[in-house]
Design a binder for these strands. Structure first.
Lengths: 357, 357
DNA sequence: CTGAAAGCGCTTACAG
DNA sequence: CTGAAAGCGCTTACAG
């Protein structure tokens, strides 16, 4: 393996100069830089990340924590984040919690991440008080996406879940529905994670504004999965007197609901309308009406906001990005308020007017 | 941040001993180990990965390369791999190629990975000759999952794609179908990636064994996506004289096909039967008949095969795994032949007998 | 703009 | 079973 002093020797300069030239520091003459780059190229030199990190104190790595990479929203976010990070010269360390409380604690509460990454991105990660303490001790920059409990000092990128749910429910109301059920997230996350409570709130608000009283018997707690939607719908139907419409807190729940309805001999939307939130890849295929949210854009934007103050990663000869300009005087911009990205109603075939009785 | 000499001082031993005790090396007395662990615990010590890697020459990190993390198979594989790696004390560096040829080359052909990871896992990654050369120069252990072009010296975990396709096609033949279309993968990957060519072969073999001649006009090339399946089906229908059944090379293609059929006013399975491969999360919801393949199990198994010869990762006090025993005499076992995991036909509602004409 | 030298925090022969 | 010391391959003040 070629090391930095091989390059230095070939280029006829010191290792310090090689280091500077390769990282694009401005204190290197053009001629010298050219020679160094040529030598590095010729020797196929790549810096040793370990050595660079140890000496430089930066890891050029970002930890990305998601609940479940296999769920549409998280996969889509990670894909966008991955592209941005690698393009910026950063590595992506993936942590998939997989619903295992023990794993969450190991990732968030140990000093593990501290010397391993320069920054942390938490995607919809439930955070309990002890986690917040641990994160504060880590003292690393971070950002959250769609996370209910925000981390003090960290920016957050998300949608307005309350408004999204209101729009969805309003769509059903506008079609003439009055018995509108809601299927939402895991009650176990209740304390720490607000996506599903926000969506429930929007649902209830829309009903109240229409002069209706939310019926607890139509309000189901489940999981953000197809299976969760399926089970909740089965239970809902078992209660008798089915709703004419279901607002599912996410498209995966909605898909499960559609199956359960079909299995029960009910047609969508003739017997029961269904609307979700997300605009999952498959929603168009299934004809599912939904509130579309920009998942990839949230990931991209969050990655950018996270990296901007860090500047470029640890780089080799193929660095292709310069640090983002800071504000005047070199001050970082003030902590941004949560960035709220827009959602929009996408009407497909799963919603329609209730049957005239 | 506590460093190793803080722990050494508190425990009253040398840093070398701390290092050994924390990594579970056998050459430390029980009493000493206890003291060291207690000191580390008390100081909340975590090793510096950079320093450990630089000194030890191991990164405790595995690169996982996937075409698209958002596709069901790859997300499911990564989830299983992530769990295994982290449980074994390894970090997971994620590379999502996203269909960008340039990215593939940057990941595979530069010396980038070399000092960054201890091993590489390539999931269904197209490999051209130049990539193979580059990988050989990297001289790192690796494993492939479902990758068409195998890497010399690397084991491979996969299913038998030819057999899976044969079974799928046979299912349609057994139902009485004779005009059976096939929708397969991207022709651009033809040279380097054999999943879709294998599945096409199985399809053709099954037809021939049934005494039928494969009809090129029923054989569509597309992409392994919902949209690809949709488009190919639209084109297929535009050719006139539609098939009575479609064998889609994966479930996502099958889903796109189902939509296109529905949009064209054709019922599944009454007018056209559809079968896929995968057993995607949504296939049950959609009633899609498919050839199920064990995605998570392939990931888990590949991770285990990859790590076994490496032993435990770089560890802190929370190491929870010992290196796997080697064969007698310390020799590694001979390179394993490809490990073929079983698939199975899952009959749902999307396939049935052709209409009697 | 450039270089000599210290230092980042570990692990690993080597010696005992 | 344990320790002193070298060394892993960079980056960073510091000096010029």
């Amino acid at each position: 393996m070629t090391r930095i002093d091989d390059v230095a020797r070939l280029a006829g300069v010191s290792t310090a100069t090689v280091s500077r030239a390769l990282r694009g520091l401005p204190t290197v003459s053009a001629a010298t830089r050219r020679r160094v780059l040529a030598a590095a190229e010729q020797l196929q030199y790549a810096v040793s990340p370990s050595a660079s990190r140890l000496a430089g104190g930066r890891t050029g790595t970002v930890a990305v924590v998601v609940p479940r990479i296999t769920r549409w929203f998280f996969g889509t976010v990670v894909e966008a984040v991955e592209e941005f990070l690698h393009h910026s010269g950063y590595d992506l360390l993936l942590y998939n919690l997989g619903g295992r409380e023990q794993v969450r604690q190991r990732v968030l509460r140990t000093a593990n991440l501290h010397k391993r990454v320069d920054a942390i991105m938490l995607v919809a990660t439930p955070l309990r008080p002890a986690d917040l303490t641990a994160l504060a001790e880590l003292d690393l920059p971070g950002i959250t996406i769609s996370s209910g409990s925000t981390v003090p000092g960290w920016p957050c990128v998300r949608i307005d879940d309350v408004a999204a749910a209101r729009t969805a429910t309003r769509h059903l109301l506008d079609l003439g529905h009055r018995r509108i059920a809601h299927i939402s997230g895991d009650p176990a996350d209740e304390l720490a994670f607000t996506t599903h409570t926000d969506r429930r709130r929007g649902y209830q608000e829309a009903l109240r504004r229409a002069g209706l009283r939310p019926d607890p018997r139509l309000d189901m707690e489940s999981q953000f999965t197809i299976d969760g939607g399926n089970r909740a719908t089965v239970e809902l139907l078992a209660r008798g007197e089915p709703p004419t419409a279901i607002f599912a807190a996410c498209d995966e729940i909605a898909m499960g609901a559609m199956t359960a309805l079909r299995d029960a001999g009910l047609r969508v939307p003739q017997d029961v309308s269904v609307i979700g939130v997300d605009d999952h890849d498959l929603s168009a295929v299934l004809g599912l009406t939904t509130i579309a949210q920009p998942a990839a854009e949230q990931g991209r934007l969050a990655a950018r906001m996270l990296l901007d103050p860090l500047g470029v990663g640890i780089v080799g000869p193929d660095a292709d990005r310069v640090p983002a300009p800071r504000g005047p005087g070199g001050y970082s911009p003030a902590p941004a308020p949560p960035v709220i990205l827009p959602t929009r109603l996408v009407v497909r075939e799963s919603t329609g007017p209730p049957r005239a009785n």
